[in-house]
Amino acid sequence: MMTAPEPNLIRIDDREIPFVHGETIMDAALAADVYIPHLCHFPGITPQGNCKLCTVEVDGKPLTACTSPAAAGQQIRNNIPELNEARKVLTQMLFIEGNHICPSCEKTGNCALQAMAYHLGMLHQHFPQQFPEREVDASHPTIMLDRIRCILCSLCVRASQEVDGKNVFAIAGRGIHASLIVNTASGKLVDSDLEPSDLAARICPVGAILIKEHGYDAPIGKRIFDQHKISEIGLEKIYIAGAKSDDS
């Protein structure tokens, strides 16, 4: 007896979504215009699953959508109150872990962390501020690194290695003491080969890596998340352009 070939479909909430073998749940969702909140994922870069915001329930089990392979017949819950509440708490944790000075940060309105907080209805930081001491690196002539705003998503680490063909960043330290480091003998950005046109310099979802001398090119009110919701699919292109310097 002939059996019909297994259709490559997964169900996310109330939608049947096709996928190609080898795709992750996140890949399939984005291709079908289904938003799964995420901060450390960026299409085209090897996923890592460290922020945990994209956690979905696959047949009842919590898995990160960005690292879990799609498999036929998966029943996935995504946009449900329990998960969105957990995502909000994770976002609060990211806020209190660093020092996110939204009103005075150049990234305000272009910041994915800030937009995520709005998206998830986060009205306060809830947890006690941790006030870590993390070094500012202003040594580079055109790029600035303020580690206190870093959420350890490692996108710059991966973008530098995988897209720019360099290896400028790494994450060092353990637990709450983890922080972004620069792969130079001095540990300073100025001695690296990072350039403002590199994806690693533009991919930062927060205000940890900033292009110098381009403050407030777009005025408040006309910034990315003033005009778009973070839940829109395919914002990455605008995002990269938004952080781009004129000379690149």
């Binding site: 994770l90 006690p128 709450i176």
Partner: peptide
């Protein structure tokens, strides 16, 4: 656990410290 958390993921990195506190 707060001391031994590797720091890779948000819930463990921040959560174990919040629990200790």
């Amino acid at each position: 656990f707060a001391h031994e958390s590797c720091g890779f993921c948000t819930p463990c990195r921040v959560g174990t410290t919040l629990l200790k506190q």
